[in-house]
Design a protein around this nucleic acid. Sequence first.
RNA 1: GUGGCCGUAGCUCAGUCAGGUAGAGCAUCGGAUUGUGGCUCCGAAGGUCGCGGGUUCGAGCCCCGUCGGUCACCCCA
Length: 424
Amino acid sequence: MSYKGPRGTYDVYPGGREPHERAGLWAFVEDRARGILGLHNYQEIRTPIFEEIELFARTAGEASDIVVQKEMFTFRDKGGREMALRPEGTPGAVRAYIEHNLFKLAQPTKLFYVGPMFRQERQQKGRYRQHTQIGVEALGTSDPLVDVEAISLLYSIHQAVGVKEEVVYLNNIGDMETRRAYVPELRAYLQRHAADLDPDSVARMETNPLRTFDSKHEGTQAVLAEAPNIGAYLSRAASEHLAAVREGLDALGVPYELDERLVRGLDYYTMTVFEAKSGALGAQDTVGAGGRYNALIPDLGGPDLGGIGFGSGVERMLLAAASHEQEPSLDVFFVTLAPEARVPAMRLAGALRADGVSCDLDYGGRGAKGQFKQADRSGASFAAIVGEDEISRGTVKVRDMASGEEREVGASDGATELLRAIGA
RNA sequence: GUGGCCGUAGCUCAGUCAGGUAGAGCAUCGGAUUGUGGCUCCGAAGGUCGCGGGUUCGAGCCCCGUCGGUCACCCCA
């Protein structure tokens, strides 16, 4: 056995060591999230996990490292088309929205998706080459109350799955007018302090100065601490939008912190951006994040409509959550004490399952003691014992595993008495 | 892609300093209890010491390389 899973991936299986490797927890998170999304009238969209590279290249922006540093998994199909495994969910969803003319319906179109995303990065805590996002896109409107709904939704999902030490950060990075006013000021300021910046930030200062705020470099952060704030440069529209979002969040009781240095990695964001972090994670502490993208739909060939969305990492939610794992439960474990008892036991198990009673039996050829031990470990409420004596009498012995109490019931006419004995 | 740390039983790890017969706990299986679990006791099974090369009479240990993991940078959910 020398095969290992691909670098940066993980398996989900019974008894997995890390929270995101445990099958039961995935079901828990998905159930909770789908429940809340349904309550807000969001409907599921499923798009391919690969698209043409061009779609992602356009949306991420030329300055984004997803494209520039080739963090996408790419391949060429047999027709020579350049394809990529999706690094994020928004482009595919927006592409489908336009392709199927969903904007002709009453707007907004409220969509959610759950699925794997791929980025060819080096793994670390909370970061994987294949990870799963629960995401939302509310398309076809620029109403600030939709922003409120999206942020509230993100917060609600996190609360429902038990994300610990969460803080939601909010900012408005403005419209074109805002950036025309702000970006030159920021760039000029950074250029004056270029000597104290890290090399990455010096390069970004020209291409996309907003992104320097993401740097973890000490010198850069010291410079940025004195940098002009975008808040003072917001256009009237941006400023009113931000005020409306804040008013809505306050009314709903969603706690948040305004952070004027919050920018997002993807270039398509405009106006509202937000990010939910958890202190229970490592350096990769963003659990979910998103923002408004008012130019994206027209950029991809659709009508001039706005949209907003977020993605939340399921692995990070699980890592940041208190464990809600449920003990596996079993109703009945069959103990067979003679070879000829095995088939009758399987038949009875089938009859019980037909009535919704979960059953299992020994396939390991264990002795009586071993089978009872297995029954105990399986968490079964009852053991149903079938041996030579029971077969000759046409009965089954039912043992209550908690009390140790046993009683013999008839089994010649199916599982009726057995069902009664276990109170099903 | 860059850097730190780490690769010994299914799992968690000791053994590396000072080269000399590969260990423990937990888990698994069996027995004590010929058809009865949890607790206890006894026993068994389980290892190319990540891989390759080198030094040496002798390498889990030293040297070189390589692969993998992990955390951090970068970037991002």
